[in-house]
């Protein structure tokens, strides 16, 4: 088959693809959102709509605020004392920054996976069970089932089912990261935030995580921060390009990579800076 020719089957697939993305409903909506660390204006007038059950990636040079953007969704920035915000972030209809929001409930709704695999220095089982126990969601048999279900979803069950009592730190880096994903899934979130989850991993482990992300989008809204352009192009349906605290361009990944609207985006994609 000639690479440049579009076959009827592929065209069909593209239409489906387009429909899947365009037809998705909004899950996370930023409205005129600003964030400061002390005097430092880190996020500037962000207004974007992240859609449900697709993978959205956020890319941009380091220091552009993409991690902060991610952490704004589950209010992990609250930990930093001098952090201030204005504007709103909605998950479905709920404003995350409303006065009466229970942040702990919010963070249960929104799972997060970090750059460096950070399993607790506990057994594999206890790691996955941690959030379930914290929220009193299950115990006994139910807890066992929840742990198994999460590990299966994270495609880790077959590798660790016979070593659930071993320390999580004995796992390989890629396994640790999938364990962290299982741990996040165990509390049954709606959204999964991933902050450069593969930057500390080798290519094989990265491939496994990327396949995993693809399978997760059916149940979850996945937001992925990545430094790696190829990764954004490979796995995500929609991509936002951020630069110095602003969302420069946001659209379907294919469009953004193939013909970016803004010059800045083009320069970034073609590697003129980074």
């Amino acid at each position: 088959m000639n690479g440049n020719e579009i076959t009827p089957g592929q065209a069909m697939q593209d239409v489906f693809e387009e429909f899947r993305i365009d037809g998705a409903v909004n899950k996370v909506v930023f409205r005129d959102f600003n964030l400061w660390y002390g005097e430092n204006h880190v996020l500037k007038d962000i207004s974007v709509e992240i859609k449900s059950n697709i993978i959205t990636s956020i890319m941009g040079p380091s220091g552009c605020g993409k991690s902060t953007f991610l952490r704004a969704i589950d209010r992990m920035n609250d930990i930093i004392p001098e952090c201030r915000t204005s504007g709103q972030v909605f998950i479905d209809e709920d404003n995350v920054y409303a006065e009466d929001v229970d942040v702990y409930e919010l963070r249960k709704r929104v799972g997060m996976v970090f750059q460096k695999p950070n399993p607790f220095p506990q057994s594999v089982y206890d790691n996955v069970a941690y959030g379930v126990r914290i929220h009193g969601m299950a115990n006994g048999r139910e807890l066992d089932e929840a742990v198994e279900r999460s590990l299966r979803m994270a495609a880790l069950w077959d590798e660790v089912s016979d070593r659930l009592d071993e320390s999580a730190l004995t796992l390989s880096g890629g396994q640790q990261q999938r364990l962290c994903i299982a741990r996040a899934l165990a509390v049954e979130p709606e959204i999964l935030l991933m902050d450069e989850p593969c930057s500390a991993l080798d290519p094989i482990a990265t491939a496994k995580i990327e396949t995993l992300m693809r399978s997760l989008q059916e149940k979850y809204t996945v937001v992925l921060v990545t430094h790696n352009l190829q990764q954004a192009a490979r796995v995500s349906d929609m991509t936002a390009f951020m630069y110095i605290g602003e969302v420069v361009e946001f659209g379907r990944t294919k469009d953004l990579f193939e013909n970016p609207e803004k010059e800045l985006t083009e320069n970034y994609i073609t590697g003129k800076f980074g």
Partner: peptide, 27 residues
């Protein structure tokens, strides 16, 4: 105790106090 432990626990919806008791102090 690595910061990552705290972040992971907080991101799962644990309170600061739960994080200290269950993660930070044991470590």
């Amino acid at each position: 105790v690595p910061r990552g432990y705290r972040d992971a626990s907080l991101a799962l919806g644990a309170t600061k106090w739960q994080t200290i008791l269950k993660i930070v102090l044991p470590a």
